[in-house]
Nucleic acid binder design. Sequence first.
DNA 1: CGCGCAATCGTTATATTATAACGCTTGCAG
DNA 2: CTGCAAGCGTTATAATATAACGATTGCGCG
Lengths: 183, 183
Amino acid sequence: MSDTQVPPNAAPVKAEAKADPRSPFPNPNQQTAKKLAQTVERATQVFADRGLRFTKLRQQVFAEIAATHASIGAYEILARLGEKGTRVAPISIYRAIDALLDAGVIHRLESKNAFFACRRTDHTVKGKRPIFLSCEKCGAVGEVDGQHIFDLIGEAAKGAKFNPRVKFVEVSGFCPRCATGET
Amino acid sequence: MSDTQVPPNAAPVKAEAKADPRSPFPNPNQQTAKKLAQTVERATQVFADRGLRFTKLRQQVFAEIAATHASIGAYEILARLGEKGTRVAPISIYRAIDALLDAGVIHRLESKNAFFACRRTDHTVKGKRPIFLSCEKCGAVGEVDGQHIFDLIGEAAKGAKFNPRVKFVEVSGFCPRCATGET
DNA sequence: CGCGCAATCGTTATATTATAACGCTTGCAG
DNA sequence: CTGCAAGCGTTATAATATAACGATTGCGCG
């Protein structure tokens, strides 16, 4: 599921395929090194700002998650770190993940039991989350603002006299680059 | 902190606690036998209407799920059936669950890896689902209509050029009977 | 009826995801 | 420089889910 197959540009490539930096679906195969460094840097800031410890293990785990736009499971992180010589137990991965989730620099995709790096700077507020769009073909996860939708969900819940605490909205489908699901 | 004190169950209860039949949160401890029979009957109809086979095992699994308003895990179903003398392998439970999900008579709660009986008659359409409200205290799951919310989610996705296929909306919090989270 | 096919289920084994328990190490506030 | 909480290692196990393959069963159709 990880070998993201970029279709040979058979069709004349339009603007949409040019990895609009504002799109929630940038090309996963572009300038990984530099952008990754930036992303790690931002995470470092978040930890610093909140007086949390961005330990070596947490950095390593975060780097693996942020290295792809796709969601990634805990045991895949474990395996990739292993290949690089960092052999740890599953529990250590999960502990790092918990810290990263608390810090808000990664999110959990409930429908896949997997994790992905948060690439936005706003909505890091706890209890409020953006909508997640997960591609069934390439695995990429994008985030779009869903504040008004979450508000409506809150109202719907209260209409049932339900007191909401945590809400999530996830959409599974096909990202722009994987088009309509045709292969 | 407000001490919104929930009276012990012996206290004189008001209208809200009287299990309004229209509420998505009926009292889980009421007239289980009769209502359960009705629910099973409705499931039987769904299977019949769709030309699917409501086998003995599927009936048993469905009955266990429908026996509570809370969500229930596959292995808990396994255990409860076991206590009643029906010893099967996990895979059999999962196969029955898959059939029940396909028929739309149960739903899967992604955030808990658990299942619950659908008690509504509308929204059984595939690809469209109601909003799930899951109580953190008693485990009860209620469903409320979310058609307009799902529509908005679809629009938000399309705004990101994302082609949605399946949408998940789940809310975790406290049901009316468990009030504000105070114990 | 009974043949044949597809669906269901049994059986065994294993994969995948996640946490418990306990003790050692380390960073750092005082 | 010491005491404590956070972090992490280690071992073990729990909880959730699926693969593979053969036996059985329901049932449409000749």
